[in-house]
């Protein structure tokens, strides 16, 4: 469109900015780390292996609550009326994905704290002995709590995708693949985050559960790559506006972010590293830290790419 008169300043299609991208990342990271930790717990329980004090589970107990709280703080500060955010807790419009997100998070956040408190029970009781009774009850319910947290974490991961895909005029966002893509990448970020924090703070030598987390990385990376392919192939077949939006991965800054960040750091580096790195390296701290940072940066890049490139193409 060739605009001869009329200021376009107010009409920037990019409404949501990097703060939203970081929030979506944080919510995914928290949900992903919980999914991986609880999944690992179930896997080990089913084989009769001990689950107490595993570094990866401790890591999730840190990442789960911290990431979601940082994300929420960013989100609230980004509102135009941050001091009136309580309206969102009082009024629910159930056709809005955001309202469903609020409901899920209202249950998810406290439960993640309970999860963390149970993992660090000793430390918590040391500082707050009066919590003993509550923690005991929670401990008895742990099995059901974990199932609930798992379900809610799935919900949180998927909702961050639907939040964007509900916006009907942006072809890249308005696709059913997006929630699946966000869930898959939340799992990568979650497992990488767990490995990173476990390696940095909790690991002594037992790298066996890190090994198990590694094992889910391939299928998750595969799913993420598949979703990306489906997204862009789907766009290519969905009419002229959607087809035009495929330019997001061929032209402009966001194309570089996509190929270098999302594909390079997020998928190629971790997969090549785990495939070709010499055996001796694989369990060294440096290697684990480098690879998991690379994955995390890749997912962060993906959220930015989706938020910015997604809003740049409007049908």
């Amino acid at each position: 469109m060739n605009n001869i008169w009329g200021s376009m300043e107010q009409y920037d299609p990019v409404v949501w900015n990097w703060i939203i991208a970081v929030y979506l990342f944080m919510a995914g990271l928290s949900a992903g780390s919980m999914l991986v930790a609880i999944g690992l717990k179930w896997y080990r329980q089913s084989r009769g292996l001990p689950t107490e004090g595993l570094p990866v589970i401790k890591a999730a107990a840190v990442i789960g609550p911290v990431a979601i709280c940082l994300g929420m703080a960013l989100l609230v500060l980004d509102l135009t009326k941050p001091f009136e955010f309580y309206h969102i807790l009082l009024n629910y419009n159930l056709t809005s994905v955001m309202a469903w997100g609020v409901i899920a998070l209202l249950v998810y956040i406290p439960l993640v704290f309970v999860f963390a408190a149970l993992v660090f029970e000793k430390q918590v009781l040391h500082y707050a002995p009066w919590l003993a009774g509550v923690l005991k009850v929670c401990g008895l319910l742990e099995g059901s709590l974990n199932k609930l947290i798992f379900a809610l974490a799935l919900g949180v991961g998927v909702y961050t995708g639907f939040l964007l895909s509900a916006m009907i005029s942006y072809p890249i966002l308005n696709t059913a693949v997006l929630p699946a893509l966000f869930l898959a990448s939340a799992m990568s970020a979650g497992s990488a985050g767990n490995i990173l924090v476990a390696t940095l703070f909790f690991s002594k030598k037992e790298s066996d559960c890190i090994e198990q987390v590694h094992r889910i990385e391939y299928p998750v990376a595969f799913n993420e790559a598949l979703c990306l392919v489906l997204l862009f192939v789907g766009l290519n077949f969905s009419g002229p506006a959607a087809q035009a939006a495929t330019a997001a991965i061929t032209t402009g800054t966001w194309a570089s972010v996509f190929w270098i960040g999302v594909v390079g750091l997020g998928l190629v580096v971790p997969v090549l590293a785990s495939t070709f790195a010499p055996k001796a390296w694989r369990h060294t701290k440096g290697f684990l830290i480098t690879v998991s940072c690379s994955t995390i940066l890749g997912v962060l890049a993906l959220r930015h790419f989706v938020v910015y490139a997604g809003q740049s193409y409007i049908s």
Partner: peptide, 30 residues
């Protein structure tokens, strides 16, 4: 679409069918 996505119902359809904004309910989520 604006009414559908609004989490609080601040973007709403008035009785006369006119799409309106309730300033009090809005949190400014954009």
């Amino acid at each position: 679409p604006c009414v559908k996505v609004c989490p609080t119902g601040a973007a709403y359809v008035n009785d006369d069918g006119i799409v309106s904004v309730n300033e009090n309910k809005c949190v400014g989520c954009l």
